[in-house]
């Protein structure tokens, strides 16, 4: 478009420079149709493409990962509920009136499908999970492709669960494994919790060591890790899994990565095949020191 404007400007300047009044009008008439033609043809190309293709493109606008917090609404506080879990909802395919997708949250990957209603460019879906898992339920959500949002609720089939309904407002996000992703320094200021809400007496504090090394891109040596606390080692190791989009069943790790790691998104419950040779090597080393700390750090013995 810019090129055309430039060309037009050049032509106009040339036309002006010619300073012939007759020429001026013909030149501008010649130049203008060209200009008009192009401005008309560009939208025409889009409109004239086959209808099916345009629909596909619109469908593709819904596909992909939507990430955010799966926020508890109805909770039974006697059952130790987790009010906030990071969830990824993936929209995988659409057929004439059905939407298919899956969700990944808290180490649980579940498919869902349901009828959809199109309203403008948004679609609204009521999608059920298969129902053979204790934590299955029904999702109701609307996708707004213009805002890249997926907003809705979820109701558990089993109303006696610790959390029987949730709500969410998820943002569209692409996933790509990136070994360069680092933990921010703030992670070192946080604590590890086994339970939620955060009981201060059941916490384990992390230190600045936790973000010192990236175990996905740097080969750890024993000197690097031998003086580290167990918690830092554990988070450093689990950061490898987090980079691959691993969804943590383990609450302690889930709380840290869900809340303290901005780039983290759960997309898979099994990432073993994705680990690189370097990562496997580092995991082995880290596990050794973690186990050693677990068994011997505050014990009489060795």
């Amino acid at each position: 478009m810019k090129k055309w404007l430039l060309l037009l400007a050049v032509l106009l300047i040339q036309a002006c420079g010619n300073s012939s009044e007759n020429m001026d009008s013909t030149d501008s008439q010649e130049a203008n149709p060209e200009e008009i033609e192009t401005t008309i043809t560009t939208p025409e190309i889009e409109e004239e493409e086959p209808q099916a293709d345009a629909e596909n493109r619109q469908e593709e606008a819904y596909f992909g990962y939507y990430v955010g917090f799966f926020e508890g609404v109805d909770m039974n506080f006697d059952k130790d509920p987790v009010p906030f879990n990071k969830i990824t909802i993936s929209i995988d395919s659409l057929s004439s009136e059905m939407l298919y997708g899956h969700s990944v949250v808290a180490g649980n990957e579940r498919p869902f499908s349901g009828p959809m209603v199109v309203a403008g460019d948004s679609i609204t879906v009521v999608a059920s999970e298969p129902g053979d898992d204790r934590y299955d339920g029904v999702f109701s959500f609307t996708i707004r492709p213009a805002e890249e949002l997926l907003i809705g609720t979820w109701k558990a089939n089993n109303q006696r669960l610790a959390v029987s309904s949730r709500q969410y407002k998820l943002e569209k996000k692409t996933f790509a494994y990136d070994p360069a992703l680092e933990l921010s320094e703030e992670v070192g200021w946080s604590n590890l919790y086994e339970k939620y809400p955060k009981y201060p007496d059941k916490s384990e504090s992390l230190t600045e060591d936790v973000s010192k090394f990236n175990a996905s891109s740097y080969e750890l040596k024993k000197e690097d890790v031998e003086n580290m606390y167990q918690g830092d080692l554990e988070v450093m190791r689990n950061a490898i899994y987090a980079r691959h989009g691993y969804s943590f069943k383990n609450r302690k790790m889930r709380f840290i990565f869900d809340h303290e790691v901005e780039w983290y998104m759960p997309v898979s419950t099994d990432i073993r095949e994705q680990l690189t040779a370097l990562e496997k090597k580092n995991i082995d080393l880290l596990k050794r020191y973690e186990q050693h700390a677990e068994r011997y750090y505050d014990e009489f013995g060795r």
């Binding site: 031998e226 003086n227 505050d298």
Partner: peptide, 14 residues
Amino acid sequence: KYIIVAIWHPRPMD
């Protein structure tokens, strides 16, 4: 080691 760790929680190699 047991006493020192119980009181001060120093780093393991320290």
